[in-house]
């Protein structure tokens, strides 16, 4: 086990991700723009008559928007590994005495921390314009989002780890993240959806992510919290396992 999880190496990778994050501020701006548009444009315009569990439509989708931000940032982060593979840092890590498990953990944690910092911005904006959020709610949201982000980062790393070129990048965003977002309860109550959408939403792990965040922020949930937690944890384990397998096969040949 000691050879698989190397603390110093994991710290190095996390530190590197944070340094890059701090120097590429465009990444942060570009990825909070669309959640904010959804929250304020769609949220406000559809606001008039909606009343879901005593909340306005904008308040109802706010946890969904938090989830959206986590989803898109995390998956895109995972895909950046293709870029790393093409040049720079990844080769340096691949030839170092760092196991692929440590590489995976470092990469995933780096992504989670980045996504959390971004999510915090939206949480604060929401606190001023959408609904009051207590410190406890903030902490709980952070914890929940940590696991959600880890899961989605892992999906991105799995896809990115297997892909060789950047061309597939947009394809993945269109065919993985948008469906995950739309076939979920982020923007509407799935109990009112038609059967197909409902079925897809129930399989979609992202649904349970949003449900937990909604439970924390609005005390309103469609599924039992314990079920959501178990589903998210199981997905985290399965996806980590697959991604580590994929990472073990990465070599430096382009």
């Amino acid at each position: 086990m000691n050879n698989l999880i190397q603390i110093s190496g994991i710290k190095a990778i996390v530190l590197r991700e944070l340094l890059v994050f701090s120097r590429e501020k465009e990444r942060i701006i570009s990825s909070i723009i669309s959640p904010l548009l959804f929250l304020f444009v769609i949220g406000k315009s559809l606001n008039q008559n909606a009343n879901i569990g005593g909340y306005s439509y904008q308040q109802f989708i706010f946890p969904g928007i938090i989830g959206m931000d986590i989803l898109f940032t995390s998956i895109r982060y995972g895909l950046y590994i293709i870029w790393d593979k093409k040049m720079d840092f990844l080769k340096e890590v691949l030839i170092s005495p760092i196991s692929r498990t440590s590489l995976f953990l470092g990469k995933a944690l780096g992504g989670v921390i980045g996504a959390m910092l971004e999510m915090l911005i939206i949480l604060v904006i929401g606190n001023f314009f959408v609904l009051k959020i207590s410190i406890l709610q903030m902490i709980l949201t952070m914890i929940a989002c940590g696991f959600v982000s880890f899961m989605v980062v892992t999906i991105g790393l799995a896809i990115g780890g297997g892909m060789k070129t950047m061309e597939g990048f947009g394809l993945v965003v269109s065919f993985v993240s948008w469906p995950m977002f739309f076939f979920s309860n982020a923007m509407f109550e799935i109990s009112k959806s038609n059967t197909t959408v409902w079925a897809l939403s129930v399989i979609n792990p992202f649904t349970y992510c949003v449900d937990i965040i909604r439970k924390i922020l609005l005390n309103y949930a469609q599924f039992p919290v314990s079920r959501s937690i178990i589903i998210i944890l199981i997905w985290n384990i399965i996806l980590s396992y697959i991604t580590i397998k994929i990472f073990n096969r990465i070599d430096t040949q382009k």
Binding site: G9, K11, A12, L15, R16, R23, M87, D88, K91, P97
Partner: peptide, 23 residues
């Protein structure tokens, strides 16, 4: 043969990360 430095980091940071990777 092809550079594998991290372009966005400073010279010192590149070396420091290396020292961490090698514990």
């Amino acid at each position: 043969q092809e550079p594998s430095l991290d372009d966005l980091l400073t010279a010192k940071e590149n070396l420091y990360l290396h020292s961490m990777l090698y514990n």
